[in-house]
Amino acid sequence: MPLTLIVSDGVLPEANMPSTIQRLSEAFLRLHGLAGNKVLTPNVVGHVQVVPKGRTFSGLMPTDVAVVEWLTPSFAFTSSEIQKAYVREATDIVYEACGGSLPRTNIWVNVKHAVDGTWGISGVAYSNSELGEALSLG
């Protein structure tokens, strides 16, 4: 499950990047009941994309921002409870990691779902049902 954290340069201290990705990932796993899952945990990957100052925008104006973006199978983030809890927790995690310098109004959380059958791990394309079955074994 790829996680991308997009931040304007200078918003998130470099020293906080690893723990921020870890905390965002742990929240995803915990809220989905998959904390410690031996199949999924090694396949939760993340990166921080730092965008130069003046190249992130909100309200049509250059603005410092942070965007938490997941790409997941369509069976993830399906319940309203998980969606609301994750958005709240992810916003808190990023806000804290930025030392409170980035307003919560400038932190967004997005989820994109992959097309069924195109979830590739180690060169194997899994359908949602195949991936779900593998996760149940972990």
Score class of each variant (00 low, 15 high):
Asn128Cys: 08
Pro52Tyr: 06
Gly120Ser: 15
Thr41Ser: 15
Gly120Leu: 07
Val109Met: 11
Gly59Leu: 07
Val45Cys: 10
Val68Gly: 05
Ser74Pro: 05
Leu131Arg: 08
Gly54Tyr: 10
Val109Ala: 12
Leu71Ser: 13
Val68Gln: 07
Ala125Trp: 13
Val48Arg: 08
Asp92Ala: 11
Glu89Trp: 03
Asn106Tyr: 12
Ala66Trp: 01
Glu89Phe: 01
Val44Phe: 05
Gln49Ala: 14
Gly59Tyr: 07
Ala76Met: 14
Glu133Met: 10
Tyr86Arg: 01
Glu81Cys: 01
Asn106Val: 00
Leu131Ser: 03
Glu81Ser: 14
Thr63Cys: 11
Leu137Cys: 00
Ala114Gln: 07
Val67Gly: 01
Gly120Asp: 09
Gln83Glu: 06
Trp108Asn: 10
His32Phe: 03
Ile107Arg: 02
Ala134Trp: 13
Lys112Pro: 00
Ala76Gly: 02
Ala125Cys: 12
Asn106Gln: 15
Asp64Leu: 06
Gly123Lys: 08
Leu60Met: 06
Leu34Arg: 09
Gly99Lys: 09
Gly59Gln: 08
Ala76His: 15
Ser122Ala: 15
His47Leu: 13
His32Cys: 04
Ile107Pro: 01
Ala134Pro: 00
Asn37Leu: 09
Pro52Asn: 03
Ala125Arg: 13
Tyr95Arg: 01
Asp116Thr: 06
Thr56Lys: 03
Gln49Arg: 14
Leu102Thr: 03
Leu102Pro: 05
Ile82His: 06
Val44Leu: 14
Glu96Gln: 12
Gly100Asn: 15
Asn128Phe: 01
Gln83Ser: 02
Leu34Ala: 12
Arg88Leu: 08
Phe57Ala: 04
Ala35Met: 07
Leu60Ser: 10
His32Leu: 06
Asn110Lys: 10
Leu60Val: 00
Gly120Lys: 13
Phe57Arg: 02
Thr118Asp: 06
Thr78Met: 04
Leu40His: 04
Val87Asn: 11
Ile121Ala: 08
Ala97Gly: 08
Arg88Thr: 13
Pro73Ala: 11
Ser129Phe: 10
Ala66Gln: 00
Glu130Met: 13
Phe75Ser: 02
Val109Pro: 00
Asn106Pro: 03
Leu40Val: 15
Trp70Gly: 03
Ser101His: 01
Gly100Phe: 11
Gly36Gln: 10
Gly59Ala: 11
Asp92His: 07
Asn37Lys: 09
Gln83Val: 10
Gly120Asn: 15
Ala76Tyr: 15
Ala97Ile: 04
Trp119Asp: 05
Val45Gln: 08
Thr41Cys: 05
Ser129Ala: 15
Gly59Thr: 07
Ala35Lys: 12
Glu133Ile: 08
Trp108Thr: 02
Ser101Val: 00
Ala90Ile: 07
Glu69Gly: 08
Trp70Val: 01
Trp119Cys: 05
Asn110Arg: 11
Thr118Asn: 11
Thr56Met: 13
Thr118Phe: 15
Val109Lys: 03
Arg30Lys: 07
Thr105Ser: 15
Glu133Tyr: 11
Trp119Ser: 00
Ser136Tyr: 00
Met61His: 06
Pro52Lys: 11
